[in-house]
Design a protein around this nucleic acid. Structure first.
Lengths: 229, 229
DNA sequence: GCCATTTTGTGACCGGGATCACAGAGATAT
DNA sequence: ATATCTCTGTGATCCCGGTCACAAAATGGC
C-alpha cells in the first residue's frame, strides 16, 4: 500500500468512518497537494467532487465584492471540504484556500455515489457531517443576531478549540493552531481592532493566555457563559 | 389508501422524491396534527425523528434568553423539519412552531434508517435537502456580515418568494403568504421599525407593493441587486 | 544580528441601526 | 358601530462597533 493510501485511510478513520469504508474510499480517491495560500476552488466554480484533508489545514470563506471576507470554518486533518456542491449539484458555495501546505484526496461525484450506493454506512456518515455543519452554521447565525462582539469571539474560540483543542491540566484547553486576530475577527464577524480589545480584556482577567503563539483557554466556562444565547 | 397517506405521498413526491419511495415512506410515517401556534419541539429537546409537512406552515427559530428570536426559516407544504437532530443524534437545534393549523407526518429515526438502508435514493435525497439548507444558512451568515439592513431584507423577501412565490405577469412575483413586518425583521435580523422604513422606500419606488395583504415583488431584479454580496 | 513585514495594542471619531415613544390604520370581536 | 387588538409609519435619541491613524511588538528572511 502506498504512503498516500495509508495516510488517507487514517484520515478517514479519524473522521469516524469504519475501517472497512476508510479502506474502500481510499481506493477511489485521487491524491493531490496544495501549497500554502493556494486556492482549491472559488465560490461560483462548478463542483464535481469533494476533498478530504489528509494533512495541513484549509479555510472556507465567502468574500464580498469589496474584498472583505467572512470565514465559515477552518478545517484540519480528517475533515471533508466541498461536500455541498457535491451533494446538491449546484456551484461551489464558498471559496476554499490552503492555510498551510496540504495533502488532499479528491473524490469525484460519480465515484462517491457509486461507492456509497453499495455502502449505506457512507451515506449515514456523510449525513452526520453535513447535519453537524448545518447545526454549526445555524448557531453562528443565531450568535450574530443575539450576541455582542465579545460573545461572538468567545463562540469562535470555543469552536476552534473543538477542532484544534488539546486538554491540558484540569480544564484548560490549548488551541494547537496558529491563528491571527485578523482571522478570529473574520470568523466572529467583527473588526480586528475590536477583537484585539476583547482578547486583551480576557487576557488581563486570566480567562485566556498565549503560550508561545498559541491561545490557551484558561477558563473555558467564562467563554461558554459569554457565548450563551 | 387513507386520505392521510395519499396527502403524504403527494407531499413527498412534491419534494422531489420518486413515486416509489414516496409510497414507501408514507407507509412508515405517523400522522399528527397541530393547531396554529402549537410548538412541535423546542431547542434542547431530545430528538428521535423528523417530520414532513403535509399541510400548513411552520417556523423554525432560535430564541435567546431575553426572548427575542431569530427566524431560520418558514417552511410550507412538502418541506421536512427536524432532520438535524435525526441525523447527528444530538438535541434539537432549534424551536419549531406551527404558524397555521398543520398536518404533519412523523418519521422515527429507526424507521427512517431501516427504510433508507434499503433504498439509497432516500439517502441521496436527504443529502440534497440538507446540503441545500446548509448553503442557505451560509448565505444568510455571509449576508449578515456583508449586507446592510436593506440588503438583508431584500434577501429575506427573495427567500420567501422561493418558498411561497407565484409568478404573475412577466417577472412580478407574488408572495402568497401572510407575513408581518415583525417576522420579516426576525428573519433579516433587524429591528421592526427599520424594516418598515426600508419596505416603505421600496414601496414608493415601485419595487414592491401589497396586494390584499400579500407582498408582491414588482422588480425582483432590484432586490437581487440589493442582496448581492 | 538587522531590517522588512506582518501582527498587535489603543485612542479618537463617526455612523448605522437599535431603542423609545407614539400616532394612525387595519383587523376582530361583541 | 364601537371597542379592543395587533399591525404599521415616523421622528428623536443613543450606543455599539466600524474606521482611521499610528505606535509598539513579533516574526521571519538573509
Amino acid at each position: 500500500m502506498t504512503k498516500f493510501k495509508e495516510l488517507l485511510q487514517n484520515s478517514f478513520s479519524l473522521s469516524g468512518l469504519a475501517e472497512e469504508h476508510a479502506h474502500g474510499l481510499s481506493e477511489i480517491a485521487q491524491p493531490m497537494s496544495l501549497k500554502s495560500g493556494a486556492v482549491l476552488f472559488k465560490a461560483g466554480d462548478p463542483g464535481n467532487g469533494c476533498y478530504a484533508i489528509i494533512e495541513g489545514s484549509m479555510k472556507v470563506s465567502v468574500v464580498s465584492v469589496d474584498g472583505s471576507e467572512q470565514l465559515l470554518a477552518v478545517l484540519g486533518q480528517g475533515s471533508l471540504v466541498g461536500e455541498i456542491a457535491l451533494l446538491d449539484g449546484s456551484e461551489r458555495s464558498a471559496t476554499v484556500t490552503a492555510l498551510k501546505p496540504s495533502q488532499l484526496a479528491f473524490i469525484s461525484k460519480a465515484a462517491f455515489y457509486r461507492y456509497a450506493d453499495e455502502n449505506p454506512a457512507v451515506y449515514r456518515h456523510m449525513l452526520q457531517i453535513v447535519a453537524t455543519r448545518l447545526r454549526r452554521s445555524n448557531d453562528a447565525l443565531a450568535a450574530r443576531s443575539f450576541l455582542p462582539l465579545n460573545g461572538r469571539v468567545a463562540q469562535t474560540l470555543l469552536q476552534l478549540s473543538e477542532t484544534f483543542g488539546k486538554q491540558v491540566d484540569n480544564h484548560k484547553i490549548l488551541v494547537h493552531y496558529k491563528i491571527s486576530q485578523a482571522e478570529i475577527a473574520n470568523m466572529a464577524g467583527g473588526a480586528r481592532e475590536n477583537v484585539s480589545r476583547v482578547l486583551n480584556v480576557w487576557k488581563r482577567e486570566g480567562v485566556i493566555s498565549r503560550l508561545s503563539g498559541y491561545y490557551c483557554l484558561e477558563k473555558p466556562e467564562v467563554l461558554r457563559a459569554a457565548a450563551e444565547l
